[in-house]
Amino acid sequence: MRKEEYQKLVAEYTPKENKWKNAVVAFLVGGLVGFLGQVVVSVLQNSLGMEVMESYSWLCVILIFVASFCTALGFFDNWVSKCKAGLFLPTTGFAHSVTSAAMDYRKDGFITGLGSSFFKLAGSVILYGILSGFFLSILGVIFYG
């Protein structure tokens, strides 16, 4: 087989990532998470008489619980790799990354494995969140008083 033919064959069998399809899936799944979140929040406010901020806090805990639990059961990894940004951009992604790191590294021990790798994936979110939050809030007080 000649080199060009071989390259053609490789190109044929390389899975093509359909960018538009990915983006639409992310939009629909992410939107669904937001929509369901709003349903939960509305139920909490109207049926249990919760205040708005309190309902958002409960929603946050519920989402983290569900994402952690689904990760623990083993099918959430698959969902995240299919739905991509639709599931890793909401808080579910944060919970997923912490739970999967905890489960994967537990075999290396509780200190050297689970403990030291716990925030392996979520650490950057916490680090850059704290950095930007800290310096911007100082700027905010300087600018807006």
Binding site: N22, A26, V29, G30, L32, G86, L89
Partner: peptide, 9 residues
């Protein structure tokens, strides 16, 4: 939520 995820993707 959808538009943010769309942008991220």
């Amino acid at each position: 939520a959808g538009l943010f995820c769309f942008g991220a993707q």
